[in-house]
Write a protein that binds this DNA or RNA. Structure first.
Lengths: 109, 109
DNA sequence: ATCTACGTGTAGGCAGTCTACATATGCGAC
DNA sequence: GTCGCATATGTAGACTGCCTACACGTAGAT
């Protein structure tokens, strides 16, 4: 998969991952990898700029911590981030319906 | 909708539209608009470069015609275009499953 | 005459993804 | 003891595809 297929959907997925519990960048990568059964392998050069972008927009809030001698920047969802996530979910529902219909592909999951 | 949400999926949808019958650019716009219940409104500055790109890749073949005094460039799917469409459909099935699962959104249609 | 629908196309900008690189710690294997 | 791997964060520069805005032209209705 990959390429640019995720273009525009990565932000929403990041917000979804940190919705339940705050998490750091590397951990977000792992969750995405696992929850997609290995299909998603977001490179750090994509993830970290995305996280900073989301924080700049006010959707995420970050804080530093040291765990096991390693610096960690943990991100958590803000109020407007929660609203943004809901908007992304609505948008995805509409988009996936439209694209699937035109492509003639009925949803897999 | 819109924005960049279609990023990467427009090509596949174009191929899908001309799968059954050859069509010209403007007509493709209309079909996309109708089949999406008005959700899709692909601007010409997006569509025409996409068509040329797809032709350059060998997925489409075009021919000029004059209908009602107006020049028309009609596009039809090639063999490799058909294969590409099938690949895009597979990819979409996988992608939509993954994104939907992570986003926590079950398909609408 | 003017407006709208039809029809094709280019130029320039913007944004998000990619590859590749840079830096640093902890831990197990050799 | 050092080598490689997993952990962890980050930047630089290129690429690509979508967007807005513009340009050109015909047909038909008001």
């Amino acid at each position: 998969m990959q390429a640019d297929a995720l273009r525009g959907h990565l932000d929403g997925m990041i917000l979804a991952v940190v919705e339940d519990a705050p998490l750091h960048g590397y951990g977000i990568c792992e969750v995405l990898h696992q929850q997609s059964d290995g299909a998603l392998d977001v490179p750090t050069g994509t993830l970290y700029p995305a996280l900073r972008r989301l924080e700049r927009f006010g959707y995420l809030r970050s804080s530093w911590a040291v765990v096991g001698g390693r610096r960690r920047r943990t991100y958590e969802l803000t109020g407007s981030g929660r609203a943004e996530l809901a908007a992304r979910q609505r948008e995805w529902r509409e988009l996936s319906g439209v694209v699937g219909r035109i492509l003639g592909v009925h949803p897999a999951s």
